[in-house]
Design a binder for these strands. Structure first.
Lengths: 181, 181
DNA sequence: ATATCATGTGACTTGATATGGCACATGATT
DNA sequence: AATCATGTGCCATATCAAGTCACATGATAT
């Protein structure tokens, strides 16, 4: 191995797993998991007629209600979900999944950095580094365009349909939350 | 802002800059800068007839000789550079830049993670999460293919040519290291 | 041969940051 | 008024890229 093993495996070969209140969540690298988590939440909300509380969602994701509220904040500001306080309150979808794409969610999350590869300096004085940044930057920008274009073409309702399909084929309960209307 | 400001800007608006022994290097995010740095080094080595020591390279990159040795280790193992100990030793290119692509370097570095976006769990039992992972993973894999294909088409000699072009147009000294044969 | 120089590498330190979590304010429902 | 739920400031924790030290190994020069 090069680069002084920076991976996810520990000496005993196990994954690095955060154990929080008895629940587990595995994040292999120093990656931003909020997009993945939000999607998980949105699809579950779609299966759920009543508002879901941050507490419920937190348990589902194996995380803390506070984290849920904070991550959902962007979605609320963008108008994709709404939150209600007090008895019977919680989170609900503010529009159908057919009117949301991966790109919409990504943007609502504040369009976090996509790549784990970085350029050494923003505006280097070294001409060599300028040339390197230009070449590398060009590839990265192209990839970013591709990726975001791809995100824009995936409607959340399509993901939901894929879920329905999976659910139809295996009759076991799945998550910690029931998939009921 | 959403997601509890995780960006690169501090309250005073300045970038987070690592100051090391008087030199500065800016890494906006938790990104892996080794590819960018290695490229910088390789191009400089190409301009340098004599072997370059880790000390020289370290000064050039604003980092430490040990870091340089460690990062270069993968390149040596892959046969792109060679290192010689003792007086007059140091690092030299083991083959011309025209025979190396961005992809080669990336692989020699151990093919570090490309994306800052992660899936919540590797093999979730929740069917909803499975559907999410599938959708997100598909987009990410597609983008990865694109990006690596792009890397494979960029020869380092092309980046060097771009540098030569820049150097011809501006006659100022640039880096901390002279661009001489 | 031996002093010097340069790489090779284990072990530890430092700094950045995604996420976890508490505490308390705000507002809605019963 | 009691309870429930969100909103959010503040701090804690874990992980990891990069920095640093220390020392071994090997090559060159005098």
């Amino acid at each position: 191995m090069l680069q002084r093993r920076q991976g996810a495996l520990r000496d005993d070969g196990s994954r690095n797993v955060l154990v929080t209140g008895g629940l587990k969540e595995a994040f292999p690298l120093r990656q931003n998991g909020s997009l993945s988590r939000i999607l998980h939440v949105l699809l579950h909300m779609d299966q759920h007629r009543d508002p879901m509380t941050s507490e419920q969602i937190g348990q589902m994701l194996g995380t803390n209600p506070t984290v849920v509220r904070r991550t959902m904040a962007g979605m609320r500001e963008a108008g994709y979900v709404s939150s209600v306080k007090g008895h019977g309150g919680g989170w609900t979808l503010a529009r159908p999944l057919s009117e949301m794409t991966l790109l919409d969610v990504y943007k609502a999350l504040g369009a976090p950095e996509l790549f784990a590869l970085g350029l050494a300096t923003d505006a280097p004085t070294c001409l060599v580094e300028q040339a390197v940044n230009t070449a590398l930057g060009r590839s990265l920008e192209e990839a970013e365009r591709q990726l975001l274009a791809g995100f824009g073409q995936v409607k959340l309702s399509e993901i939901a349909a894929d879920f329905e399909h999976r659910a139809a084929r295996s009759k076991h309960g799945t998550c910690k939350v029931k998939h009921v209307a």
